[in-house]
């Protein structure tokens, strides 16, 4: 058994158990229901901004035009305006496609040896499940705003209506939660099923997967099986959102498992690979226009040296050059 998998799984189970024990003890409900969520919020927002500012300070001396299309060239060569943009608008379109549709992931290929030669195939499963994962997570997150906003805006009730479009069972099965769980399970199975990928996976890869899997699982368990008192849950969350926190009397202790693991995710987020959410905006190969041939980009930390032409050089060393027999352009 892989030590990275076991360690991450144990970490999630221990954290969940801790939250359940804490949530079951009335004296500790204030810690798990009020104190930790506020700490998690501050650490998430503060950590996120700190990480962004740290990246923003990195110097970007020149353009890194790693592109997938024809550069702007002669008028009769077709320029690929999105894959190899020369303008800010082109970059915005390229970034938007990258962030909203994961274009780089779409180009993912798999190398295989067939007979005696290597062959590359398109491998779209990762792209597909990554899309499902991110969009269903977004839907789940936005849907949860019903617990933090009062009155609940129409757009959120509308999203929930679309999410429960198939009207399966009561409480209605919401697709995004099921899809989130399925996608995160796929991303985990993909890591353990491919030997090369398993070799390259660390605890930092498995931990967020187990964490999100458990968050989705506990959420669905509370909605469909345990059916916790939603009004009590909203009382707690509205207390947090209105800065008048209190612990409702009939809150289900199991809620604290879900809530605490979400807090763990929020605290973990800015200090882990999950920061690709902010980092994608700083991808140097994606966010810079390839205009090196149009505009001169000068390295900002170049020392300010005087520019010496050959003429000046020869004027300074003419006698010595003639003495040494080096040819000169002007004899005197």
């Amino acid at each position: 058994m892989n030590v990275n998998i076991v360690l991450s799984l144990v970490a999630v189970v221990v954290l969940g158990a801790l939250a359940f024990l804490g949530g079951s003890a009335p004296a500790l409900q204030g810690v798990f229901g009020i104190l930790i969520p506020y700490i998690a919020f501050v650490m998430f927002l503060g950590g996120f901004i700190w990480r962004i500012m740290k990246w923003a300070k990195s110097p970007v001396p020149f353009r890194i035009p790693t592109t997938c299309g024809q550069q702007k060239s002669l008028s009769w060569i077709k320029h690929d305006k999105i894959e190899n943009p020369t303008t800010g608008i082109g970059v915005v379109i390229r970034m938007a496609l990258e962030i909203l549709t994961f274009r780089s992931l779409f180009r993912n290929t798999k190398a295989k040896i067939i007979g005696d030669r290597i062959s590359y195939e398109l491998e779209l499963w990762l792209w597909l499940f990554a899309l499902v994962f991110h969009y269903s997570f977004l839907a789940v997150l936005v849907r949860h705003m019903r617990f933090f906003l009062e009155p609940v805006p129409v757009c959120i009730t509308f999203l929930e209506a679309v999410d429960g479009f198939f009207q399966i069972g009561l409480p209605i099965v919401l697709m995004s939660g099921v899809l989130l769980f399925a996608a995160v399970a796929f991303l985990f199975l993909r890591r353990i099923a491919t030997p090369t990928l398993r070799y390259a996976s660390l605890a930092a890869d498995y931990f967020p997967l187990f964490l999100i899997m458990t968050i989705a699982g506990t959420g669905m368990y509370m909605r469909y099986f345990l059916r916790v008192d939603v009004v009590a849950v909203k009382e707690l969350t509205m207390g947090l959102a209105t800065l008048h926190p209190s612990i409702p009397a009939n809150i289900d202790p199991f809620l604290f498992v879900h809530l605490f693991l979400v807090c763990v995710l929020f605290v973990y987020f800015p200090f882990s690979k999950l920061m690709h959410a902010g980092g994608i905006f700083f991808s140097p190969t994606r966010n810079m226009a390839n205009n090196s041939r149009i505009k001169r980009h000068i390295n900002p930390w170049n020392p300010d040296l005087p520019f010496v032409t050959y003429e000046k050089y020869e004027n300074a060393f003419r006698e010595k050059m003639i003495e040494a027999g080096i040819p000169v352009e002007k004899e005197s």
């Binding site: 705003m145 933090f148 906003l149 009062e150 009004v231 009590a232 909203k234 009382e235 509205m238 207390g239 959102a241 209105t242 800065l243 008048h244 409702p248």
Partner: peptide, 12 residues
């Protein structure tokens, strides 16, 4: 959520 609810308590 903090500025949407503008800090007023909203009881159940």
């Amino acid at each position: 959520p903090f500025w949407y609810n503008t800090g007023t308590a909203k009881p159940a």
